[in-house]
Design a protein around this nucleic acid. Sequence first.
DNA 1: CAGAATCCGCACAGATACTG
DNA 2: CAGTATCTGTGCGGATTCTG
Lengths: 149, 149
Amino acid sequence: MASQTKAMQKKISVVDSDETQKTVPLLADTAGFATNEDGTCPIREVLDRVGDTWSLLVILNLQQGTVRFNALRRLIEGISQRMLTVTLRSLERDGLVLRIVRPTSPPEVEYSLTPLGMSLAKPIDGLGQWAVDNRHMMREERARFDAQQ
Amino acid sequence: MASQTKAMQKKISVVDSDETQKTVPLLADTAGFATNEDGTCPIREVLDRVGDTWSLLVILNLQQGTVRFNALRRLIEGISQRMLTVTLRSLERDGLVLRIVRPTSPPEVEYSLTPLGMSLAKPIDGLGQWAVDNRHMMREERARFDAQQ
DNA sequence: CAGAATCCGCACAGATACTG
DNA sequence: CAGTATCTGTGCGGATTCTG
């Protein structure tokens, strides 16, 4: 996911000259967290961190408990060794994943969710549940759209 | 967001030779929607569609009701004309956004969420709420991580 | 076993110009 | 106003090789 552009950091001015102002009130009043004072957007701030290809899948799979590196690699079919490393390091950096190294030979490295990571897993589960419930409908809609144009 | 690789379409085999099998049971048993029969992943399926830079922000801003193209463009500071068009078309294709063209001059095009889109807005709000509640902690954790290494 | 390092392709997204 | 069309660059992520 792309990082924020400089333009996104600017303050926004929603005051409109025409009647759209009436039907489109200030964003913060309705959405609540689509934007905030300093011009950043909490949703984007989170998605810039866990919205990449693999982060959510890693978090989801760590919900089961503690998993070692290669076990995790097998769980998440299709992830490369490099991307698992990069993703885990990023999640660890944000305090979402705990990394424990056991200095044995061969080395054992265990990964698990921190309390913060566990709390994030909940809203992610909400998305996942929506996905399960509605993916068929999305496929149908898409097929219809593609058919008629 | 990258599309799924061929490897991700394969069936997974979680049966392990060592003791990790005990601590890492079958994914479907615990996560429920991290993977499914045909090898696809509902979460990834949804994220591949709305996980890009702008889709969630568009959905969030359309929660307020019906918004015209340029009004939406002003609401989502930093989005280019092209990306708003592309994003809206993609959401419309998936049945999440409704596009209504009023054949006046100059043309008026209104965008709103479909029922499907509104239902998706709920779990997204869950993520947004988490973002508001925890972004400061994430920043602190990140600062700590960067400081000590 | 759990990685680090390097190389590289390509898709995503920005900028710009033009139009019904 | 609400788009299209084209060109371009950047960074994400895959593949491969090497190590403690």
